[in-house]
Lab assay of single mutants.
Amino acid sequence: GTVHVGDKTYHFPTPDAAKKFAQEIAKKLNLQVTVKNGTWQVH
């Protein structure tokens, strides 16, 4: 899975790992999470 946070991109071996990371970052930074075609965006 891929997660975009601002101008950074993180790659994870599984979709679940990407989802978990995106949700944790969003919670920590009080941001929104959207997913499109398996790519997570934190914004």
Rank of each mutant, 00 (worst) to 15 (best):
T2F: 08
L29G: 06
H11T: 10
I25P: 00
D16G: 10
V5H: 06
T39L: 09
I25S: 04
V35I: 12
F12S: 00
A26K: 02
T39D: 12
K36V: 15
I25K: 03
K36F: 13
E24F: 14
L29I: 03
A26S: 07
Q32S: 12
K8W: 09
K20E: 14
K27F: 11
D7K: 13
T9M: 09
V5I: 13
K19D: 09
G1H: 14
V5R: 01
K36L: 14
F21P: 00
T14V: 04
G6K: 06
F21N: 01
G38E: 07
V5F: 14
E24K: 10
I25R: 03
V33S: 04
H4C: 08
F12R: 00
G6W: 12
L31H: 05
K27G: 09
F12L: 04
V33L: 11
K27T: 12
G1T: 13
K27W: 08
K19R: 13
F12K: 00
T9Q: 08
H43A: 12
W40M: 05
V3M: 02
V42L: 08
N37V: 03
A18I: 02
P13S: 13
V33D: 01
T39P: 02
W40A: 03
D7P: 09
A17F: 05
K28G: 05
H11S: 08
T14K: 04
T39S: 13
D16K: 08
L29H: 13
K27E: 13
Y10W: 08
A22G: 02
K19T: 06
N30T: 04
Q32Y: 07
T14C: 05
T34R: 05
L29D: 05
H4V: 15
Q41P: 03
N37G: 10
V3K: 00
Q32E: 11
I25M: 10
H43W: 11
K8S: 07
T14W: 04
L29T: 05
K20F: 10
K28S: 09
E24H: 13
F21Q: 01
V42Q: 02
A22T: 02
A22C: 03
T34M: 06
V5L: 10
H43S: 12
V3Y: 00
A26M: 03
V3N: 00
F21M: 03
T39I: 15
D7A: 11
A18N: 00
A26F: 02
T2G: 03
Y10S: 01
T34S: 12
T39V: 15
K36T: 14
Y10Q: 01
K36W: 12
A22F: 01
W40K: 01
K19E: 15
Y10D: 00
N30P: 01
K20A: 14
A17Q: 12
V33I: 12
V35G: 15
G38Y: 07
K20Y: 10
T2S: 09
P15Y: 14
T39Q: 14
H4E: 11
Y10R: 01
D7S: 13
L29N: 07
G38H: 11
G6A: 07
G1Y: 15
K27H: 12
H4K: 14
H4R: 14
G6Y: 12
A18V: 01
K28M: 11
W40V: 05
K36I: 15
Q32K: 12
N30M: 06
G6D: 06
P13L: 07
A18G: 02
P15T: 12
V35E: 15
H43L: 12
Q23R: 07
H43R: 07
V3G: 01
Y10A: 01
T9H: 07
P15Q: 15
V35A: 08
I25H: 04
E24Y: 15
K20L: 12
